[in-house]
């Protein structure tokens, strides 16, 4: 072989097509924004049903999660995500999709070793590091800030 790893790395970069950035961003913007609008509409709906502010927010999140699960089950969420990219990944519906899709996928390996064990295989890190970050904040709030005053 008359080629070094570095030379090859450059060749690969040139030969590989880039992502169509503008189109991808447009899709992400429209779909992601659309899901947020849906969240806002649901919030208004639950407020009208006399839920208090925080409960209305929670109910609209739960409804989005439910809708995401429904459309994931039909195979539509994945299809939309092929185009929408981060537009379907970043909203809470993407989190729900990350829980529902492995649950469905590993149903063939049983309810315990499949669904139960694999359900959080993708979303797990989000929970782990989200909670850990909040714990760090908690430590700061409880131990450090009071002593600074």
């Amino acid at each position: 072989m008359k080629i070094t790893r570095n030379e090859y790395s450059d060749m690969v970069k040139k030969a590989s097509p880039n992502s169509p950035l503008a189109i991808n961003c447009l899709w992400a913007f429209v779909v992601g924004g659309g899901i947020c609008v849906l969240g806002e509409l649901l919030y208004g709906f639950y407020r009208n049903m006399n839920f208090i502010n925080s409960d209305a927010r929670l109910m609209s999140s739960i409804t989005l999660v439910g809708l995401s699960a429904f459309f994931t089950g039909l195979g539509w969420y994945g299809r939309l995500a092929k185009k929408a990219g981060a537009g379907t990944l970043v909203p809470i519906t993407g989190f729900a999709n990350a829980v529902v899709s492995p649950a469905m996928e590993f149903r063939s390996e049983g309810l315990i070793t499949g669904v139960g064990a694999k359900m959080f295989i993708i979303a797990g890190p989000v929970i782990v590091y989200g909670v850990l970050a909040s714990v760090v904040y908690g430590v700061v709030l409880y131990f450090i800030l009071p002593n600074m005053r």
């Binding site: 950035l21 992400a28 992601g32 924004g33 969240g39 806002e40 537009g87 990944l89 970043v90 909203p91």
Partner: peptide, 20 residues
Amino acid sequence: LIKAFVVGGLICVAGQLLID
């Protein structure tokens, strides 16, 4: 609604930029 659309959409665009 418009504010939700724009801000939510922009956050997703930030994610898309990180991916690409």
